[in-house]
Design a protein around this nucleic acid. Structure first.
Lengths: 132, 132
DNA sequence: TCAATTGCGTAATGCTATAACGTGTGCGAT
DNA sequence: ATCGCACACGTTATAGCATTACGCAATTGA
């Protein structure tokens, strides 16, 4: 899924996420965009839905927040499942891929004949700086 | 973390989850327990907090729901990270462990000096029956 | 031109989770 | 025994996250 030309709202939401130094909730995004005419959550959620679909934004399920993809110029989906390490102290997120993990999970689903649609891997803890 | 004697509320919540054939949201649990005197979400959330702490219940982050642990007589935590496959059609959840996945993720965190506190692995899709 | 699609705006609502307050009970230490 | 503490509980209110429902406007393509 490659991103076509973004609409105005999509571009605004994406820019906010791209400039943030960590994940943002939909309502935080809304607040940051009030000066640009945003009034309602749905304006944010609709834009996010598209950005997620295009693969340029990820949703962090465990903290109900969103981040810009760390690999803007590649197609994230081609790397397999995206995993995240989320620092609970400073909020920073590291995005990574591990083919072996993908492989193991794929093996498991194959064995169970489970048809995987979306896989979430999120590690919460403390980043190197905050753990020190 | 082994489970001590449960309090009345904890036991009620646990029983509801144990008898359910799939994950339940806190509010669904609340509704099921109104006849037993439950009136407010906090009664459920407080019980859930303890049950999660004891390891007899798991939280499914991606669907904001809770399930009884599938291995009631073992200590889940001793198996490493618990992973879940969640059928989006019938709602059934399969709980599993994969040491190799744990190992890979542990390797990654070690390399990044990231101190993992809680790891979430959830695969959403269709179970064998529903995919057929 | 008409119909279908897509994005947008607004209001209302629903679902998920926690804060803040106070009560009661059990239990160990003084 | 009684004081102080920890813990579970009950209630109200509020905060935070997400969707439903309605209608309008612009675009596209048959």
């Amino acid at each position: 899924m490659n991103a076509p030309q973004l609409t105005k709202n999509q571009a605004l939401v994406f820019d906010v996420l791209a400039k943030a130094d960590g994940p943002l909730s939909a309502y935080t995004i809304l607040d940051k965009l009030r000066d640009y005419g945003f009034r309602a959550p749905l304006q944010v959620y609709r834009a996010l839905d598209k950005l997620l679909e295009y693969g340029v934004v990820h949703r962090l399920e465990s903290i109900n927040s969103f981040v810009a993809c760390a690999h803007p110029n590649e197609n994230c989906h081609s790397h397999g499942t995206v995993a995240f390490a989320i620092c609970e102290s400073c909020g920073h997120v590291i995005e990574f891929h591990d083919h072996e993990v993908d492989h193991r999970l794929a093996n498991w689903t194959r064995g169970k004949k489970f048809k995987a649609e979306k896989t979430t891997i999120e590690i919460r803890g403390l980043c190197e700086t905050c753990a020190a």
